[in-house]
Design a protein around this nucleic acid. Sequence first.
DNA 1: CAACTGTTCAACCGTATAGTTGACAACATG
DNA 2: CATGTTGTCAACTATACGGTTGAACAGTTG
Lengths: 121, 121
Amino acid sequence: MSDHPPISAAMLERVAEQFRALGEPSRLRLMNLLFSGELTVGELVEASGLSLANVSKHLGLLHQVGWVTRRKDGVSVRYALADARTVALCELMCNRVRERAEAEAALTSTDPATTTRRRRG
Amino acid sequence: MSDHPPISAAMLERVAEQFRALGEPSRLRLMNLLFSGELTVGELVEASGLSLANVSKHLGLLHQVGWVTRRKDGVSVRYALADARTVALCELMCNRVRERAEAEAALTSTDPATTTRRRRG
DNA sequence: CAACTGTTCAACCGTATAGTTGACAACATG
DNA sequence: CATGTTGTCAACTATACGGTTGAACAGTTG
């Protein structure tokens, strides 16, 4: 825990915006599909099972905050990951979730007594 | 872009939950304050300027998803970062924001013509 | 026990946003 | 130009969530 200066409110909002854009399962699904490369909106619709307008909306937001790039290709539009760090970032979060799941499983199996939450008597 | 298998809906929701917890300026501010070490709710209230109940609520959520630890210390409660990766994660996002800000600034200064769609031409 | 401090919880309100629907824009083809 | 294809945008509804307020709870002190 070395030196960590305070951060401006504007910066906090910008950073929060980045996190928030990834804080939605549908958008995470689209990002995950883009892990394998550039895809059109139509392809993402088919692969995700989401509605066309919904996918377009999510992609618009991801593009606005800079997580994906947009490129017109004839009649369709191709989206791709804009940041090489995206995959690492998502995998870090996946590992966190897995670790927590394992930790919880270990707790409940080794110490069932402590799982009886304290309630006022 | 190597092999990236699809992810279950439950997993996506869990991962999104992690991102979402950090997708709020007030919570990010609290996390940032905790960068310097363990703090009580009261200390966080004073440092953040947020209301007591509000801080408690945010800390409750951060604790629920595993971003902070909670420890009773006499009459007060001390919170701390639970994950060593937190700082690196936030700094990555900060760098992203800074990079994007610089890229935008460079664009508007070198190519004013394309910015006519917006004010500040 | 009673009073005080520090924290959490529950109910409420206002706003933000996910998803749908329908209209419309951009590009291709006949 | 008319038509089909692909995607975006605007309006709408339902739900989620941030923030406030007031009550309840847990230690500490007298």
